[in-house]
Design a protein around this nucleic acid. Sequence first.
DNA 1: ATCTAATTGATAATAATTATCAATAAGGTG
DNA 2: CACCTTATTGATAATTATTATCAATTAGAT
Lengths: 126, 126
Amino acid sequence: MERNTVQRQEIIEVLKNNYNHPTIKELCELVSAKNIGQATVYRTVNSLVSDDVIRRIDCPDGVHYDYRKDHYHFYCLKCNKITDVFLDNSLIDNLLSASNLTDIKHVNLVFEGICDNCQKLNKDTC
Amino acid sequence: MERNTVQRQEIIEVLKNNYNHPTIKELCELVSAKNIGQATVYRTVNSLVSDDVIRRIDCPDGVHYDYRKDHYHFYCLKCNKITDVFLDNSLIDNLLSASNLTDIKHVNLVFEGICDNCQKLNKDTC
DNA sequence: ATCTAATTGATAATAATTATCAATAAGGTG
DNA sequence: CACCTTATTGATAATTATTATCAATTAGAT
């Protein structure tokens, strides 16, 4: 039922090779050379999220996407950059069991704060 | 510098008395009786988030807002309802120290899955 | 090779968000 | 209290983001 179209393949490929957590807009630019209509990018990305092929990252500046699922994220409120945060599964398991929820599919966990670089820059200007 | 306007007071009051995690759209409706322009709702809500008076909850269906900050959230992928999840601070502290991040202002944590009610409904139809 | 139905892409339509700017009002100050 | 300054408001326009439409295409089955 999910057809393996060339557009879908290409979008997956781009996401797989990109570690920068692109937004849908950035993704449109990344595939623009391949002449994929933006309606198709929207449709495909939504379908890939539903099918658990890629992951949504809900950030203060909007939605980003990530092909990799083995980590969490930090969002810098100053420079708006996203960095990966690797956490032991056991820590997340502790949350899950404490939550008393019985059917959790995903954990959207985004730390928000000031990254080391922005902290340093701020210190320099004082 | 932050002026305590009647509009701002009213929006804070509505958020304080609302436990349903309203979206900006819902908030506009909630204050519509008070003749507050929607541009003002947008501006005020963004400013309240910046000032840490209210909290953004980034969900699959968009952004919701919450006046209370002592808990986390569960989002049902079936019925799209948000419920509060209370977790010990110690669990979150464990995440923070494991993350190696030094200046975290917030933790946006949203569990996504199927709520008990939707699980039950699903079972009934089989 | 042919068939069928899902998918695509161009475009239109809609929805969401931000910018503009004259009018208003909050919070000083004398 | 009257006055002043300037942030804020609200109506609207402008912009941006997202979804719907539909004829043409194409993946995958037969």
